[in-house]
Amino acid sequence: MALLEVEHLRVEFETRRGNLIAIDDVSLAIEEGEVLGVVGESGAGKSITGMAIIGLLEPPGRVTGGEIRLAGRRIDNLAYDSMRRIRGKEIGAIFQDPLTSLNPLYGVGRQLAETIMAHTDASPTAARARAIQLLGEVGIPAPERRIDAYPHEFSGGMRQRVVIALALAVNPRLIIADEPTTALDVSIQAQIIQLLKGLCREHGTAIMLITHDMGVIAETADRVAVMYAGRIAEVGPVRDVVKSAKHPYTKGLMGSIPIMGREVERLSQIDGSMPRLNAIPTGCAFNPRCPDGMARCGVERPDLMATGGPNRAACWLYAPLGVAVHG
């Protein structure tokens, strides 16, 4: 049994102009200690998927279908208080902007100790000692002197380290990291990724790494799910998705990324842009932009299917009939 299982998840936003379906039939699983990358462009639904898992969807967004199970236990229908106990203790979260994840009015040590005491029986002294130890683990120099410093006294990279310490404070089994390095400079990005990966390997924590940056995924993740317009377009081991993408969207996405040392005059581009939620095309959502579109794509929606390699792709090219046509 996988640590996290998401099955047929559907998230809708009720608005005056009708229901918008942000996530439509997303299924994924994360094994114990595994890093699953979730990649996609803005509006693909990757952050909403993360928020649905930790139960932090902002109204009017709500889960309207499917199941989320953590270690076999269903968590998408839990009451607010029971979910609160799971958040932090079993599922940690790291968000993009470390400044908004920390309370500016409290010292970082107090925030860490508060989290530790909320989820364990630790005494204030023990919690503080654990907080100092955590700050040291995430690479903050002289943690015993920095423990009472306020968030604004840290640089962006150091703040993100504090947020990682917060997420790891009570050894959760899963961390949802939503664009953890996007707000950071490139040289700091590498440090944070290495730190997150190293710590999770030590603690055996699984990570759901949500990002738009294929480079970060390529370095960090074991498996990748590529999202497009609220659905998973392709999923597979990171190497196979990066090197031999199967879905036309993933292919286009990989071709549009400038890569160092690859001499190309023009980047391959996917024309158009991701559809808005109120205008998702029928059939495969990617079909208006797809270079390999067939008649079937505009009518019938493909589910993830085997592609002959380790990847699974939601594309009719890989349907038993399609294979004959497109070789």
């Binding site: 462009e41 996405l253 990324i257 400038p258 996917i270 991701m274």
Partner: peptide, 13 residues
């Protein structure tokens, strides 16, 4: 986004 970035970089070239 990266796919849009590719469009803009190509246009600029």
């Amino acid at each position: 986004d990266v796919s849009v970035q590719a469009q803009i970089l190509n246009l600029m070239k």
